[in-house]
């Protein structure tokens, strides 16, 4: 199927008919600073949560940059950064195999058990 989206929506200017310069220089992506994933603890006692990603030459710079972009409004008190290439992820194609087996095990939830109202604090 060849779908061409040409409609000119707010914030999406199509390549054709908008006077784009035709070709640009190809950049070598391997010369880019590495990509880092940023995790922020918003408050003492809470987990670090994924906030976003950024490029930096090293870990120290990644933390400094993360401070500047992700904690400008006191969103964090602690920052973790990890180079994106070290993150291993499960595959979306395998999600059925991995997560469906939990679907029919409703006895793992407390609501499965029907107890008389007389039983308190349980």
């Amino acid at each position: 199927m060849q779908i061409q989206v040409k409609k000119f929506y707010y914030g999406d200017i199509p390549d054709s008919g908008s006077g784009s310069a035709p070709s640009a220089k190809q950049v070598n992506p391997s010369e880019e600073w590495p990509l880092w994933e940023v995790f922020i603890r918003s408050k003492q006692g809470l987990d670090h949560k994924h906030a976003g990603s950024l490029h930096a030459a090293d870990a120290e710079m990644a933390i400094e940059n993360a401070r500047d972009v992700y904690t400008r409004r006191q969103e964090g008190i602690s920052i973790w950064v990890v180079e994106s290439k070290y993150i291993h992820a499960s595959k979306p194609e395998e999600s059925g195999m991995l997560y469906d087996p939990a679907e029919d095990k409703i006895y793992r939830h407390p609501t499965f058990y029907d107890l008389p109202d007389a039983v308190k604090h349980m």
Binding site: G11, S18, S20, A21, A24, Q26, V27, G52, V69
Partner: peptide, 29 residues
């Protein structure tokens, strides 16, 4: 930055996006 990061998840390098902006290939508002 948030948006460049989102665009990068689609498999396009940041430096190339910047290059395309500077060469006049890419558009902005």
């Amino acid at each position: 930055l948030y948006l460049y990061s989102a665009a990068e998840t689609l498999g396009f390098s940041r430096d190339q996006m910047i290059e395309d902006l500077h060469s006049g290939k890419a558009k902005y508002s």
